[in-house]
Every structure is written in C-alpha cells, then in structure tokens.
C-alpha cells in the first residue's frame, strides 16, 4: 500500500499549485460575504416595506447569508475542478500509475480538498454573519442567541459539503465540462424554480442544497418560507446522504472503468 501521509501530501501539493484553487475559493468567500452585506444593508432600509409575514418570521442570520445562493456555485466549481482536471489534463493516468490503489487516490484527494473547502466555508459563513449583522443595525441578532451559532457553523458546513458533493459527481462523470454543465444549472435554476412550484416543492425539499441549507435558518420558515418537514440537523443528514451517495458512485466508477 502507498503511504497515506505521502498521498495526502501529494494531493495537497496538487491543490495549492494551480491557480484555479485560489480563484474559486476566493470568489466563494468574496461573493458570499459581499452579497450578504449588500442585502443586509438593503433590508435595513426597507424593513418597514416587508410583508407582515416576512416581518413576523424575520431571520437576520438568513439575511446575512443571502450571498450563499451565488457563492455556493464557486464551491461547486472548486469541487468539480479538483477532480475533473485529472481527466481533462490526462493527469489521471500519471496519478494512478503513481498511486494504483484507486480508493487511496480518490479519498486522499477528497479529504484534502474537502477539508480546505470546509475551512473556507466556515470563514465565509462567520464573515458573512458578522458583517451582515453589523449592517442590519437594529434588526440584528447576536452569535450568542439561541440556535444562531448552530446556523453559522452549519452554513460553513453546507458550503464545504457542496464542494465535496461536486467532487463525487465529477468522479462519476469523469469530465469537468459535463459536471459543471449539470451541477451549475441544477443548483442555480432547477432547484430554485422547483422550490417555488407547488407539488414539485415537496420533492425539491429533499434536494441536497434545499435540505442542507435549512440548517442556516434560526427561525423555522424564515422570511415567510414554508417550514421544512425535517429539523435543521435532519436536513443536514439528508445532505450528508447525498454526499455519501455521490462519493460511493464516484469511487465505483473510478474502480471499474479503465483510466
């Protein structure tokens, strides 16, 4: 067997020596924080114009996380590129010649990239939260309030898991272009649209993004949305099942197919 620390080290070198790592993770952070800040400032100005139901379920934490909808796409791109470039560059053959134990290769890569995505995700959610609350003025909440810390840590976990889910999908599809072509429209359009269509909504609630992001709500049914049929951690559990499925699928494809 190849030595695990050696393979982890090698995968860390792969990640830190390409520029796409820096720009995808940096844009995940910047986009999320900036959009969250802008919307928090906007909400502060327009609070009195909100519908009564939105004011009744007002959730300052969710408002400060408004940028995640867009920022998560950068996480998806990061996850896809980490795995997909092995295939698009032809590096996969060299990588597997160096580490022929395919499980060791794939899971070392995902462990390193996933840990990095998780760290950036946590930094993103904490920054978004504190900056957003500062801009919300009198409508703000604090990290010490009930369930707020859970929502902020959960937000970071959610961002990191979006990247890991995408890594599994890219390992299954073995293509950067194909993976991005499916995941980006899915999370940005399909999931968002379906969550606003009656009936379809009941299915969309179990999509990885819808289920996982429930953890960021401090107020159930925040801002007039329908309360989810599961608890915040229950939703995170559903997302984890999706992530596990994509990783198992990715591993089986890598194991069976010729490289």
């Amino acid at each position: 067997m190849a030595s695990a620390p050696a393979v982890l080290r090698s995968e860390w070198t792969k990640i830190r020596t390409v520029s796409s790592t820096v720009w995808t993770l940096a844009s995940a952070l910047v986009v999320t924080v900036a959009m969250g800040a802008a919307l928090s400032a906007l909400v502060r100005e327009t609070f009195d114009e909100m519908r009564p139901v939105e004011r009744a379920t007002f959730d300052p934490t969710v408002v400060s996380f408004s940028g995640m909808l867009l920022g998560q796409l950068a996480m998806v791109v990061f996850g896809v590129l980490v795995v997909g470039t092995e295939y698009s560059s032809g590096m996969i053959r060299t990588s597997l010649a160096a580490v022929p134990q395919r499980a060791a290769f794939l899971f070392s890569k995902i462990a390193v990239a996933g840990a990095l995505a998780l760290l950036v995700g946590l930094a993103t959610s904490f920054l978004s939260f504190f900056l957003g609350q500062a801009l919300l003025g009198e409508h703000r909440t604090t990290i010490g309030d009930d369930n707020v810390l859970r929502a902020v840590v959960g937000g970071g976990l959610y961002m990191g898991l979006m990247a890991v889910f995408s890594m599994g999908v890219a390992a299954m599809l073995r293509s950067t272009v194909l993976s991005l072509g499916i995941l980006v429209p899915f999370f940005f359009l399909v999931s968002q649209i379906l969550s606003n269509v009656p009936k379809a909504k009941e299915v969309a609630e179990y999509f990885p993004d819808q289920a996982g992001s429930t953890i960021t709500q401090v107020v159930p049914g925040a801002l007039g949305s329908d309360p989810a049929p599961y608890s915040p951690w229950g939703g995170m559990g559903i997302m984890l099942l999706w992530v596990a499925a994509s990783l198992v699928g990715g591993y089986l494809v890598l194991k069976r197919r010729d490289a």
Binding site: K14, S19, S20, S89, G90
Partner: peptide
C-alpha cells in the same frame, strides 16, 4: 497521451 497538468 500527455499525462501532466498544463497549468501547474
């Protein structure tokens, strides 16, 4: 086929 990453 080339087996190395062009951007690294």
């Amino acid at each position: 086929a080339r087996g190395l990453h062009g951007g690294r």
